[in-house]
Design a protein around this nucleic acid. Structure first.
Length: 285
DNA sequence: AGTATCCTGGAA
DNA sequence: TTCCAGGATACT
């Protein structure tokens, strides 16, 4: 999934519905999707929901938390008993519909009869029980949040770029260096900044670095405002099951063969680090 | 520093 | 039938 804006959207929304609820039961439908002993968290109360990089942290009383990574196709859908939200979409692997559906891997039930469904078509994602005391260690290998101008400083950005000869796109997607940027927003930010994604990171000039930083901060902020990107396969969903809307604002991602929104160039696709990379050869240099 | 791998399913 | 997919790691 889900890159920083999508995970942030889920975090904000879970905070609106889960706080204070008590975990009554956890059903693990796919053992690979859950790491830990569910009995350790039964009866625990949700205190807060946080996000670090692309991981959701559901903090529980008693020093434990549920860490959730949605990887490429994970969804977290919340249903309370009263509303029984009806999802009209019936077709396609990412239509939520009646829950649980064939991609539901874990169901967390709460004391008020509400439920959180973890759906994950490709089974790359996970729910993991972690001790709060271990979070520090987990954090140590993760860079500053890419949407936080206070810790993602220009000085820091210059430093990490100057130390690498790799394509700049790979550096901004490296979670150890910068947390939260994935393939969609890396493509979009580089387009916005007018920088060729293949450029060696240490080749960027100071003014380009500043523009790229502004582009990353700006695009993530906008994507959060639009509640994330539900792109072509639409795996990402808000906790209600609704799509986000930032796919309507994408400029290059997935736009191969189309006209560049800035110039008259044609959007091309290449591969960097095995990932699809979209750019305008005319205005990204 | 690259690329193979965990999976499932839609599109070309 | 082959390629591709919002991620991250375990290997050569």
């Amino acid at each position: 999934m889900p890159e920083l804006p999508e995970v942030e959207t889920i975090k904000i929304q879970l905070n609106q519905v889960l706080k204070g609820l008590k975990i009554k039961e956890i059903e693990v439908l796919k053992s690979k999707s859950f790491i830990g002993d569910t009995r350790d968290v039964i009866g625990k109360t949700i205190e807060d929901i946080e996000r670090r990089a692309k991981i959701i942290l559901i903090k529980l009383n008693g020093g434990l938390c549920l860490a959730i990574h949605l990887k490429l196709t994970g969804q977290l859908i919340f249903r309370n008993k009263e509303l029984r939200i009806k999802n009209q979409e019936k077709n396609g692997p990412f239509a939520v519909g009646e829950l649980p559906n064939k991609y539901t891997r874990v169901i967390i039930s709460f004391s008020d009869e509400s439920r959180l469904f973890f759906n994950d078509l490709r089974i790359f994602g996970w729910v993991k029980i972690i001790k709060n005391s271990k979070l520090r260690i987990m954090n140590s290998g993760v860079g500053p949040e890419a949407n936080d101008e206070k810790t993602f400083t220009l000085e820091y950005f210059k430093q990490i770029l100057s130390r690498s000869k790799k394509p700049v796109k790979l550096v901004i997607m490296d979670q150890e260096k910068l947390a939260g940027v994935g393939n969609i927003y890396a493509n979009e930010a580089l387009f916005m900044a007018g920088i060729d994604p293949r450029r060696p990171a240490n080749d960027l000039r100071d003014n380009e670095i500043a523009i790229l930083r502004d582009s990353i901060l700006g695009i993530l902020k906008k994507a959060i405002e639009h509640k994330g990107t539900s792109d072509k396969d639409e795996a990402f969903r808000q906790i209600s099951g609704e799509k986000g809307s930032f796919q309507n604002y994408l400029q290059v991602y997935g736009k191969i063969g189309q006209k560049c929104p800035k110039c008259r160039g044609i959007i091309k696709r290449t591969k960097i680090g095995g990932r699809g990379t979209f750019y305008c050869p005319a205005c990204q240099n």
